Simulated scan of single mutants.
Amino acid sequence: MKIILLGYMASGKSSIGKIVAEKYTLPFIDLDDYIEKQEGKSVSAIFKDKGEIYFRRKENECLQELLHHENNFVLSLGGGTPCYANNMQLINESVTCLSIYLQAKVATIVNRLKNEKEQRPLVANLNENDLDEFVAKHLFERSFFYNQATYKVNIDTKDIETICSEIYSLLT
């Protein structure tokens, strides 16, 4: 089984993905890291040098490559991945994939992003009020795609162990 984690930035996809992968002795793959290795440069540099359209095409190619791979793994998607090309359709049509939306309220995400804005180029220059509005707008736009996941796990007010336990119960 390929376990695909999706959700907005700071929803814990990578942290949770690593724990779930360890529990099931599966490789963990972060799609952005995978793309960076393929391209030999950071996602930020790809956006800067080649633009978002190129990045989204590469993202779709890499996702397809991974989904057709015979081995199982836990895959953490970028926050925008489900919203472009036919990415959610590819995931949902694959009989070897199970997708999980790590769902959070705007306030939860904003709270998490406040402490790590510098590492997040999309929000690094936003003040707190603008950050709240930015996240709310993005979540609204992306919810259509996120909600196509096989399962939803709410992450608000839960510690990482509780979230992982909920995921384990979905997988058994």
Rank of each mutant, 00 (worst) to 15 (best):
T81C: 12
F145R: 01
L102P: 03
H68D: 11
R112L: 08
G17P: 11
I53G: 01
S76K: 08
D49R: 00
L126M: 02
Y151P: 07
Y146F: 13
Q89L: 13
Y146A: 00
F73N: 06
Q64M: 08
N115G: 15
D132G: 00
E161K: 11
N87S: 09
R57P: 00
G78P: 08
N87A: 08
Q38P: 00
E59D: 11
I100H: 00
I109S: 01
L67W: 07
K41D: 03
I19P: 04
K114P: 00
L66R: 05
Q89T: 13
E36D: 03
S94F: 02
H138W: 04
E39W: 00
D33Y: 10
L139Q: 14
L98G: 00
F140H: 12
F144D: 12
S76V: 09
L63S: 06
S44I: 04
S76M: 10
I109V: 15
I29S: 04
E141V: 00
D132Q: 12
H69F: 02
F145D: 09
F145E: 03
L63V: 03
K152N: 02
T25S: 15
L31K: 05
Y101T: 08
L77V: 10
V20M: 06
F145Q: 04
T96L: 13
R142F: 11
S94L: 02
E22I: 00
I53D: 14
N86F: 07
V135C: 05
G80L: 10
H138E: 09
Y84H: 10
N147Y: 02
A107K: 14
R57E: 14
V110L: 06
R142V: 08
E70S: 14
S76D: 09
I91T: 05
V106I: 13
N87G: 09
K158E: 12
D156I: 07
T81W: 05
V106A: 01
C97T: 10
I29Q: 04
S94G: 10
A136F: 03
V135L: 02
L26W: 03
K48Y: 13
N115L: 09
P27T: 02
E116T: 15
I53T: 13
N86T: 13
L98S: 05
